[in-house]
Design a protein around this nucleic acid. Sequence first.
RNA 1: GCCCCCAUCGUCUAGUGGCCUAGGACGCAGCCCUCUCAAGGCUAAAACGAGGAUUCGAAUUCCUCUGGGGGCACCA
Length: 491
Amino acid sequence: MAEIVKPARVRFAPSPTGHLHLGGARTALYDYLLARQTGGQFILRIEDTDRKRYVEGAEQEIMDGLRWLGLEWDEGPDKGGPYGPYRQSERKEIYTKYARELIEKGHAYYCFCQPDRLEKMRQGQQARKEPPHYDGTCRDISLAEADKRVQAGEPHVVRFRTPKDGTTTVVDRMRGPITVENRTIDDYILVKTDGWALYHLAAMIDDHEMGITHVVRGSEWLPTFPLHAMICRAFGWEEPVWVHLSVFLKPSGKGKMSKREAADLMKDGYSIFLKDMRGLGYLPEAVVNWITLMGWSYDDHTELFTLPDLVEKFSLDHLNPAPAAINFTKLDHFNGEHIRGLALEELAKRMKPFLEEAGLTPDDSTVLKIAPIVRERLATLDDVVEMAGFFFRPEVNPIPEELVAKGLTAGQSAEVLKRSLAILEGIPTLTPTLVEEPLRGLVEELGFSAGQVFGILRVAVTGQKVSPPLFESMEIVGRDVVLARLKGAII
RNA sequence: GCCCCCAUCGUCUAGUGGCCUAGGACGCAGCCCUCUCAAGGCUAAAACGAGGAUUCGAAUUCCUCUGGGGGCACCA
């Protein structure tokens, strides 16, 4: 029997404070999958209430990254929607209104404590090995008096009035129920002195106002998860389905990737930032495939997926709560798989920019001819430069020592070149079928191995010891150039 | 220090009390194919953190420990 699923409204809500990384991309991907699968909406919301941490250009980078992956949103800051605005910095009055509602309901209160006093208080608590928490000084000030002080312009924040005793149980979709003692939850600040709501309040309000049905976010929110549920309950709102995804660990599995380590990774051709992936030669299809499988699996052990496959097959039921170490060699594998899955025209289109960025001037027709012979040889798209750059260089400049085959003398190797040249000069067009047979005959006649003979020719024609198949390469290079390069190698 | 989460091959994972002699994938090793490099095919090595408890029976349930991760801001 078919399960009837309500359309999900899910949001990806990054703060524009840095680069979009793999963890964020996975969260966005799961959001997208849920929305598309249920015929719901995928919403992009920018959480930029903290002006101090705002990074110019970060919002654009987030949008570029999502679009590169193919995760187009339905509502967002750049395209609007019925529940806007989609930047928290444009929603201040909404938060103020709801904060007041919470205060009047008795679930929040004005606090006039000075930051320096709170700091001292915290230090004392830590010295006494107590968990740092607000001491409740302003908790019992009457609303009438608090209002008077606010009216008088006294600096203040708004705090949540957390119950002192009892427990709170919240439910995470993949982890199940989590129960905490209320006394371990602080009277968190909801609204800062400058009047701006903090994440804890703003996100809950936005999720409610925007009709969000599923909140998918990182496990760093687990400690404040009960607070968030309490806020929803204090308003009398229905809670969304909560899903707290585990963090990605560095490849060693020991801890999160640091800024320094992320930079070091680039030296090995890897990155945790989405902005780098294209330039490193990765296909968005491969990145999607790869990050999907870090924390999620499919019933029948299939591992190769496209985005449309995932829209159909993704399920919250198969999520894994354990933190996952990032495995870049598996990304390389998926990249190869997806490269091999590309149509030749598409592969050519995607390889071309890498050749251009390497200073070459590739023409479409040649790039298309190269596609089939490099397809299963590329781990990343930028490998095409190393593998097939010689097709676009006027000179190949082989290293003299490499023109001498292993096990042969320089004289024998030169003989190979001369005899081959003579043979090829007698062939009008260098197609594999016309070239291979006579050259194999030469191999037999000289009594050398095919590897020795073809190895010499490979170096002479391509300038490299590793290349696409020799005869196919010769055909694309063209008779005139092949002959000229052989002559050049004989000297 | 306190709170929360997590725990199967090196890594990503399957596994919801008997289908487990613990399955798959990446990587690694060997073999085959082969003009190099790949791709492809085959084979191998490789794991239930420890201790208790429940049960006829535990990777699977419970407890303790250990280990790992996250959080403890007028950041998100």
